[in-house]
């Protein structure tokens, strides 16, 4: 099975109604499992797309910045509570979710990542870490229900999901700052 089939299979699997229902029934799983898996599906499919349309990527994403910007915009968009709510209640937004995350976030991420320098990569990870801490605090501290579809306890869970992921990113950043791999390998 090549990467494209794997990605396509993953996308179809995630779109199956029982799978989608299960994953969307828990707020943190919806945002931190289903959505990243959709991005991964796109990431896997990207290789074939890159091979088929090399000129397109060369013209529009030669230094990786436009692609990563598109990725950031899509990711930030889906972190807003309102958009999650709409994905559950408005059919067209649900379809947009299944298209935007794999094709507008996953594919540009793969195309851009290798073109970016180490500094830009770290800057990206740092900004996402900060954003995750901020979003985590927002979801934990908010006294109001932010989504019509999810209870406050689920919102708090999501907040802690953000915080723990940000903490993992911090561990990674410290590790890569402190440990010089060339000392070992």
């Amino acid at each position: 099975m090549n990467q494209f089939t794997a990605g396509l299979f993953l996308l179809i699997f995630l779109a199956l109604p029982p799978v989608a229902n299960l994953l969307e029934s828990i707020m943190v799983v919806h945002m931190h499992m289903q959505m990243p898996l959709l991005v991964i599906a796109g990431f896997l499919m990207a290789k074939l797309v890159q091979e088929r349309f090399p000129v397109f990527f060369e013209n529009w994403n030669s230094n990786g910045v436009p692609g990563i910007l598109l990725f950031i915009i899509i990711m930030v968009y889906w972190m807003i509570p309102r958009t999650m709510d709409e994905a559950l209640t408005v059919q067209s937004v649900a379809i947009f979710k299944y298209i935007s995350l794999p094709f507008l976030a996953g594919i540009p991420l793969r195309d851009s990542w290798k073109k970016l320098g180490d500094k830009s990569k770290n800057a990206l990870i740092i900004s996402f870490t900060v954003m995750f801490f901020a979003m985590g605090l927002l979801y934990i501290m908010s006294p109001e229900q932010l989504c019509n579809n999810y209870l406050i306890i689920e919102q708090i869970t999501l907040g802690w999901g953000f915080i723990t992921m940000a903490a993992c990113a911090v561990v990674y950043l410290i590790y890569s700052a402190v440990v010089d791999p060339s000392d070992y390998v």
Binding site: I26, V28, V29, H32, M33, I153, I156, T157, W160, G161, T164, M165, A167, C168, V171
Partner: peptide
């Protein structure tokens, strides 16, 4: 650590 977070955040918050 990421997998621990995935597994434990939901039940522990609950």
């Amino acid at each position: 650590l990421l997998l621990v977070a995935m597994g434990y955040v939901i039940p522990l918050v609950e």
